[in-house]
């Protein structure tokens, strides 16, 4: 009884502080709605990362996902990547790099009016598969491409 009361007080105090933080604009309301998926980002293999992010690692390969990435990365620390999903109702696009220490790199969630398109630059520790997972209508679709990362001579 006592412990329950304590945790109740603790929680309400925390909620109070949080409310203040939100109203002061210190924290966006989003932080309340969807926290950063720590477990998925900490996962050390692709399947575990997908499961961590979506609850299941079962994906269907889709030709409607176009993945633009270099064959050979000029510098593995900055690899330009563009993903276009033509799957109707694309809700999110996730990027995973299979041989990075923690493969999950990013999840982009499409809001109102957003197209299934995203472009960014990522770090790749070595030659690796770049895996894209698209969530649409509650289902998971995927595509992948190998990007080679070489050890440079002078420039690298």
């Amino acid at each position: 009884m006592n412990t329950k009361r304590r945790s109740f007080i603790k929680n309400s105090a925390a909620a109070g502080a949080f409310g203040v933080a939100v109203s002061a604009g210190l924290i966006t309301p989003r932080a309340v709605m969807a926290a950063w998926p720590k477990a998925a980002f900490a996962a050390t293999d692709v399947d575990a990362a997908i499961t961590g992010a979506f609850g299941s690692s079962a994906t269907t390969e889709s030709a409607d996902i176009a993945l633009k990435a270099p064959e050979i990365a000029e510098n593995g620390a900055v690899v330009p990547i563009t993903v276009t999903s033509k799957i109707a109702g694309t809700e999110s696009i996730s990027l995973l790099i299979s041989k990075n220490p923690t493969p999950l790199t990013a999840t982009f969630k499409m809001g109102e009016g957003a197209e299934g398109f995203v472009s960014t630059r990522v770090k790749m520790s070595k030659t690796s598969d770049l895996v894209v997972v698209v969530k649409a209508n509650g289902k998971l679709y995927s595509a992948k491409k190998e990007v080679k990362v070489t050890i440079g001579g002078c420039g690298g």
């Binding site: 980002f41 620390a77 923690t102 990013a106 982009f108 809001g111 109102e112 398109f117 995203v118 770090k123």
Partner: peptide, 24 residues
């Protein structure tokens, strides 16, 4: 209204770049 939200890990490059498209 949110048009895009993103969760990032450590493998997004230094000085990050992001591009996306939306209607409306």
């Amino acid at each position: 209204k949110d048009v895009l939200t993103a969760d990032w890990g450590t493998a997004i490059s230094k000085n990050p770049y992001l591009s996306f498209k939306f209607k409306g």
